[in-house]
């Protein structure tokens, strides 16, 4: 329902710390930092932009973490298959599968 995309802060207005220039692959636009009052935003930071306002500071660490999770999707699947090979799967219909067991399998 809301189009928002990542942009990189390239400059903060010297006269108004709530105004900054962002860059989206070579496209530049002024954005309002007023909704990120709690964060300290510096040039080089990435923010999520919606209707000309920065909505959120993007976390590089979380993005990297997500990438790692995505990369091992396949591998963890293989590991799961091994576990499933023990026939645990068939003991419970999917809807009744014990939560504790699933957590152990998934993470």
């Amino acid at each position: 329902m809301c189009l928002a995309i990542p942009g990189k802060i390239i400059e903060i207005d010297a006269h108004n710390a709530q105004q900054a220039m962002v860059d989206v692959v070579g496209v530049r636009r002024k954005v309002d930092l007023g909704l990120l009052a709690e964060e300290s935003i510096r040039p080089g930071d990435w923010v999520l932009i919606h209707v000309g306002f920065a909505m959120s500071k993007i976390s590089e660490a979380e993005a990297a973490d997500q990438m790692r999770t995505l990369m091992i999707l396949g591998e963890s699947a293989a590991a799961l298959e091994e576990v499933e090979g023990y026939g645990l799967e068939n003991e419970y219909p999917p809807s009744e599968y014990p939560a504790s067991k699933s957590r152990g399998l998934v993470s």
């Binding site: 999520l48 959120s56 993007i58 976390s59 590089e60 979380e62 993005a63 973490d65 997500q66 999917p94 809807s95 009744e96 599968y97 014990p98 939560a99 067991k101 699933s102 957590r103 399998l105 998934v106």
Partner: peptide, 13 residues
């Protein structure tokens, strides 16, 4: 797993 919780996939944002 018969679970129903709120999870956050979009943690980077």
């Amino acid at each position: 797993g018969g679970q129903a919780i709120v999870e956050n996939q979009y943690k980077r944002v």
